[in-house]
Computed example of a mutant assay.
Amino acid sequence: MPVHTPSSAVQAAREALAERLVDIRKNAGLQGCEVAALCGWHKSKVPRLENARTAPSDDDIRRWCRACGAEDQLDDLIAATRSAESMYVEWKRLQRSGLRQLQEEIAPLFERTRLFRVYCAHPVPGLLQTHGYAAAMLKMYGAFHRAKPDFEEAAAARVRRSQVIHEPGRRAVLLVEEAALYHQVGSSAVMAGQLGYLLEVMALPSVSLGIIPFRGERGMWAVETFSVYDDRQVGVELLTARVTVTSPSEVRMYLRAFEGLQRMAVYGAKARSRIASAVDALG
């Protein structure tokens, strides 16, 4: 799979939006100059929008959809526009106030969310991390990004934030690649404590934990770690940035990927057996 930088991802999102505008115009059987006239614009504005040289405003999208009789696509296009302009925030910007602040600023999103769907290829999901595991993970992460070394405070904030899964009316569906159970973070004691906690939390009625086995034919490849908050927003963690996806069509794509990954996972006794094997492997 090709690797994209956050900046190239943003440009790709802008270009994809421009292509959708072109498709809408062509499906309406209109020429660019006709759309410009219907929207009350100078004729040069349409090619600027269609070639992604100018980012459309919400009002531009409304006029375009009205002119082309495509009002049913309005909400999705506006969400895509906003997503293209603010879809990622570089980690170095997020880390200026330290890792603790990074954890705390996402807490309101957790408070609003009733259904969490999380996929992790390598780390244990943040929602299920112990303090020791979170501190070790954030220490590595902070050292790599040269962030303020407040990883203990950040770990405490992460654990506090994760307590939402114990509240009534919450549901967390989590998928973890089996490799994550063997990817040792911290000491053997820290890792054993983390794996033991996974066994404990599986008993919670609000938590569904699936383990995707090492072996067996896959129906979906391993992708980047992502979290879906209800059906409204997706958070994707890249090496250099945190990406926020809000376009309904893109959110649906992540949900489709989650469903594909979900079908490969094992649950209940089979999942417990794989976690127990990982504990045994620690020696």
Score class of each variant (00 low, 15 high):
residue 225 T to W: 10
residue 188 S to E: 11
residue 221 W to L: 15
residue 212 I to A: 02
residue 173 V to K: 02
residue 175 L to A: 12
residue 236 V to Y: 04
residue 206 S to T: 15
residue 204 L to N: 15
residue 180 A to F: 00
residue 177 E to N: 15
residue 218 R to K: 14
residue 186 G to N: 10
residue 215 R to E: 06
residue 183 H to C: 13
residue 226 F to H: 14
residue 221 W to M: 15
residue 212 I to C: 02
residue 207 V to E: 03
residue 224 E to A: 14
residue 211 I to R: 00
residue 230 D to T: 10
residue 238 L to N: 08
residue 178 E to V: 01
residue 215 R to M: 08
residue 223 V to N: 06
residue 194 Q to M: 12
residue 172 A to T: 03
residue 213 P to M: 06
residue 234 V to A: 06
residue 207 V to Y: 04
residue 212 I to M: 02
residue 210 G to S: 06
residue 170 R to P: 10
residue 175 L to D: 03
residue 220 M to H: 14
residue 229 Y to L: 13
residue 185 V to K: 02
residue 212 I to W: 00
residue 215 R to F: 05
residue 229 Y to I: 07
residue 226 F to P: 12
residue 192 A to F: 09
residue 218 R to T: 10
residue 170 R to N: 11
residue 218 R to I: 05
residue 181 L to W: 02
residue 180 A to T: 01
residue 212 I to T: 05
residue 186 G to W: 04
residue 187 S to Q: 03
residue 196 G to F: 09
residue 174 L to F: 02
residue 232 R to D: 12
residue 199 L to M: 11
residue 185 V to N: 02
residue 235 G to S: 13
residue 231 D to G: 08
residue 207 V to W: 03
residue 185 V to D: 01
residue 235 G to V: 15
residue 227 S to I: 13
residue 200 E to H: 07
residue 233 Q to M: 13
residue 205 P to S: 12
residue 224 E to D: 14
residue 202 M to E: 03
residue 211 I to A: 01
residue 183 H to A: 14
residue 196 G to M: 12
residue 170 R to E: 06
residue 170 R to T: 15
residue 215 R to K: 13
residue 230 D to M: 07
residue 234 V to Q: 05
residue 235 G to H: 13
residue 237 E to Q: 12
residue 181 L to R: 02
residue 237 E to T: 09
residue 198 L to G: 06
residue 229 Y to T: 07
residue 172 A to N: 02
residue 222 A to V: 00
residue 173 V to M: 05
residue 239 L to D: 14
residue 206 S to Q: 12
residue 235 G to W: 10
residue 181 L to A: 09
residue 176 V to K: 01
residue 224 E to F: 09
residue 234 V to M: 07
residue 175 L to N: 08
residue 211 I to E: 00
residue 209 L to Q: 00
residue 218 R to E: 08
residue 174 L to W: 01
residue 231 D to K: 07
residue 193 G to Y: 06
residue 208 S to C: 12
residue 173 V to H: 02
residue 207 V to P: 08
residue 223 V to P: 03
residue 234 V to E: 04
residue 178 E to F: 01
residue 188 S to N: 09
residue 183 H to M: 13
residue 182 Y to C: 00
residue 177 E to V: 13
residue 174 L to T: 05
residue 224 E to W: 05
residue 210 G to L: 03
residue 195 L to N: 11
residue 177 E to Y: 06
residue 213 P to L: 07
residue 186 G to F: 06
residue 193 G to H: 08
